[in-house]
């Protein structure tokens, strides 16, 4: 079993049901406040100021607190206090599952210890595997951007779970060629349920089936990831240019780095054809 989210970990072990996990996740989104919401609630920022920081966050690579400090909307002491309160008030999924009666505390606590041990082991393995790759800086830049854009666009928390040279089969694969000093293809391979959820968030409409529009929207999400990844490479002095995204049905080249990813919805894969 690879490191995932605690909810998925419990689900895979048959200790909770899918319905229980969905209900708890929904509740968690409702009770945990963002830094902006907290700052508004405490009267440190107006809603308009928080919105303007959120807006800037969508276009940059910075955290909410970083932007607030830069704009002199919060001072370091206020930010530290907000972060402390946010951390203190944060309700974890396990606590909600217990409160909602989906699992007992006695059953949950030893599972949490096992989950954390597995996560630590896996994070160490992934770090070593990524660090040993020949183009690891570029790959790490693109992985970082993948996590950020999926959180921003699809509201999906994603974790890296594995690194290998063997592709896992997924129903849909979208690829995009990055030309320039270090040419390569970046690909996103994912199952249908994750594809639909991704596109529902991106298009802000229901996507009950995978149609041309959904495929097109997924290509656009890919384009946003690679475009922002290219901006990072460019900032490091590399010449880069992008070609339009496309769907693929087989390997682009033999030299591939496959990075396993896990979201709260499903597993998927990011591939680098070098």
């Amino acid at each position: 079993m690879s490191a995932k989210f605690i909810g998925q970990f419990l689900l895979e072990k048959g200790l909770i049901t899918r319905e229980a996990l969905l209900a708890a996740t929904e509740q968690q989104q409702h009770v945990n406040l963002t830094l902006g919401q907290l700052a508004v609630a405490q009267g440190l920022l107006s809603r308009a100021q928080a919105d303007s920081i959120n807006l800037e966050q969508q276009r940059s690579d910075k955290r909410f607190g970083e932007i607030a400090l830069e704009k002199n909307l919060l001072n370091a002491k206020q930010l530290d206090e907000l972060l402390r309160v946010q951390k203190e008030k944060r309700v974890f999924i396990g606590e909600i599952l217990i409160q909602q009666g989906h699992i007992s505390r006695e059953k949950f606590e030893p599972e949490l210890v096992l989950f954390k041990q597995e996560q630590e082991r896996n994070a160490e393995l992934v770090k070593v595997d990524l660090g040993s790759l020949s183009q690891h800086e570029m790959i790490e830049d693109f992985l970082d951007m993948t996590l950020k854009i999926l959180l921003r666009v699809a509201k999906e928390q994603v974790k890296i779970t594995s690194v290998s040279s063997a592709e896992t089969k997924f129903r849909y694969t979208f690829a995009q060629r990055i030309s320039g000093d270090q040419p390569f293809d970046y690909a996103l391979a994912l199952p249908e349920n994750l594809l639909r959820i991704l596109c529902e968030h991106f298009l802000k409409i229901k996507c009950p089936v995978v149609n041309e529009l959904v495929l097109d929207a997924a290509g656009e999400v890919l384009n946003v990831i690679t475009g922002n990844g290219c901006s990072k490479l460019s900032a490091r002095g590399l010449k880069v240019s992008l070609e339009p995204p496309r769907t693929i049905s087989g390997p682009v080249s033999n030299h591939v780095v496959c990075v396993g990813m896990s979201s709260t919805v499903a597993d998927f894969e990011v591939r680098f054809y070098l």
Binding site: L55, N223, T226, G227, S231, S234, L242
Partner: peptide
């Protein structure tokens, strides 16, 4: 989606008045 200095500069040089980096939010 690619907000590199080169891309922005090339667009502005060719006559663009402004530049928007994706993802594009309504606001």
């Amino acid at each position: 989606s690619m907000g590199t200095d080169d891309a922005v500069q090339e667009a502005l040089k060719a006559g663009a008045r402004n530049f928007l980096q994706k993802p594009i939010e309504q606001e």
